[in-house]
Design a protein around this nucleic acid. Structure first.
Lengths: 243, 243
DNA sequence: ACCTGAACACCGTTCAAGT
DNA sequence: ACCTGAACACCGTTCAAGT
C-alpha cells in the first residue's frame, strides 16, 4: 500500500494522444491522499470535495472511485497519513510521565499543523497503520511503567480522546478565522476575545454572578495554555493510579 | 418537558437572526427548533436538512429563513435547547467533587439522550442561554470551593471539552449502529468488539507486541465505563489543584 | 484493469413575486 | 411582515461506455 510512484512512471500507451502538454502521472491511492491533504491544508475541510481532488489530479471525480471507496474512506486515509508525521522516541518507562506529556504535545502539534484533519478525524474510528503505531507506543509505555493492561487501555483511550478533541476545537477556530478573512492568529484571537468578553459583560449579573464578575479570567488563556492545563490535569490523575 | 430557563439573555453579537417577539400563527423559531430536534433524534444528523425540517412543518425550505439564519444557526439553537434539559442542584462547595461528578454524568446523559446533537455541538462555539447556565454552575462551584478564577476557568473549559468530546464519540457509534441497521445497543457493542479484537489479533506481534498481547483488555470496557474513568482522572487532577 | 463523460439524486440558499 | 415556488450553484456517487 506504500508504493509511491512519484514522477518516474511512463505514461501508458493509450494516453499518448492526450492533449495535456505535461506527462500525466498515473492515478494511485497515494496520489489521491496527497492531493486531498494538500487541499485540506490550503482550503480546509469545507473546500475538500471529490470534484476538487479530481481537479487537482487533472481528472474527473469518477476516476477516484477506482482507488478509494468514497469520501469517508479518503478522510480516514488522510488522517492516518498525517498521524505518520508524529515522531516517537525510544520508550523509557522510568520517565513515563515526561514521555507521555511529550507524546501528547507532539501529536497535538502534528494535528494542529494540518488544522482541519482533526475535524475529519473525529468522524472516523481510526484503525490505520500509524494510529496503531502511536497506540502501541502509549499502551506499551504505560504497561512497562507498571500499569495493569486494563487501566493502561482506559488511559490510552482517554488521552487520545483529549488530544483529538482539543485539536478538533482548535480547527473550528481556524475555520472561523479563515471564514472571517483573517490570516493572523493573534489578530483573530484578540477579536474573538473581545467579542466574547463584551458579550459576557452584557449578561445580567444576578443570574450569572461569577461569569460576569471574572470575565478577564475567562478569556485569559489561549488554546495552547488550555491544552497544557488539561493535559497536566490528566497526567496527575494518571500518576495517582500508577503506584 | 424538563425545566428550562428561557429568560432574558441578550443574543450574542454574532447571532444573525432574532427570536420572533410573539408566536406566529404558523411558523416560529421555536417550532423550527423542535422540529429539527425531532428529526435529529429520529434520523440523526445525516437525516437533518432544511428541506426535511420544512417538510415536517408543512412548508418549503425557503420559509425557514425568515426565522433562522441558516443550518448552522439552527444547529446551535437545537444544541442549546438540549442543554436546557440538564438538571442542576443547589451548589454545595463542600461537596464540590461529588457535585462536579454528578454534573458531568448528568450533562453526558442528556447529550447521550439526543445522540447526534453532540456531533452538531462540537461544530459550534456555544454561547446560548442554557450553555451559560451550566457554565455559571460549574464556574461558581469551583470558585466557591476555593479555586482561583483563572484556574476555575481553565478547569471548566477542559471539563466541558471532555464531556462533549466523549458524547460526540458516542454519537458516532450510534450513527454506525443505525447505518448497520441494528437497534440494540448491546448487540452493536458486541459485534463492534468482535470486529476490533479479531483485527488486533491479526496484527504482527513483533511490531505491536502490547496491542496484540492484551486484546481482551483493550476491548473490555464500554463507553460508559470509559467516560467515568476519564472523568475520575480529571477530578483527581482537579482535587490536587484545589488545596 | 483502468479511466471517463454524463447523469442522477440530492442539498443549502437566494430571490422575485405573492399574500 | 411573512411566506412561497422556482431556480441556482453545488456535491457524492453511479454507470455504461471507452481505452
Amino acid at each position: 500500500m506504500v508504493d509511491r510512484n512519484e514522477g518516474g512512471v511512463p505514461a501508458p500507451p493509450w494516453r499518448k494522444s492526450r492533449r495535456s502538454a505535461q506527462p500525466k502521472r498515473q492515478l494511485s491511492q497515494d496520489l489521491i491522499i496527497e492531493a486531498g491533504l494538500r487541499i485540506l491544508d490550503a482550503e480546509g475541510l469545507d473546500g475538500l470535495n471529490m470534484r476538487r481532488v479530481a481537479q487537482e489530479l487533472d481528472t474527473g471525480p469518477a476516476s477516484l472511485y477506482a482507488h478509494v471507496a468514497g469520501k469517508e474512506e479518503l478522510l480516514e486515509l488522510i488522517y492516518d497519513r498525517v498521524l505518520g508525521e508524529i515522531r516517537l522516541p525510544e520508550r523509557d518507562p522510568g520517565r513515563w510521565k515526561e514521555q507521555l506529556r511529550a507524546y501528547a504535545m507532539e501529536a497535538h502539534r502534528v494535528l494542529g499543523a494540518h488544522a482541519d484533519v482533526a475535524r475529519a478525524a473525529l468522524a472516523t474510528i481510526p484503525s490505520g497503520e500509524n494510529s496503531l503505531r502511536a497506540g502501541e507506543f502509549v499502551f506499551g509505555l504505560l504497561i512497562e511503567a507498571g500499569m495493569s493492561p486494563r487501566e493502561a487501555s482506559l488511559t490510552m483511550d482517554r488521552l487520545s480522546l483529549y488530544i483529538v478533541g482539543d485539536a478538533y476545537e482548535g480547527s473550528l477556530h481556524y475555520a472561523r478565522m479563515r471564514a472571517a478573512g483573517l490570516s493572523d492568529k493573534r489578530e483573530y484571537f484578540e477579536s474573538f476575545v473581545n467579542q466574547i468578553s463584551s458579550y459576557y459583560r452584557s449578561l445580567p449579573s444576578e443570574r450569572f454572578p461569577h461569569v460576569s464578575k471574572y470575565v478577564d479570567d475567562l478569556v485569559a488563556d489561549d488554546g495552547e495554555e488550555r491544552f497544557r492545563y488539561g493535559l497536566d490535569l490528566m497526567l496527575d490523575g494518571i500518576e495517582a493510579r500508577m503506584a
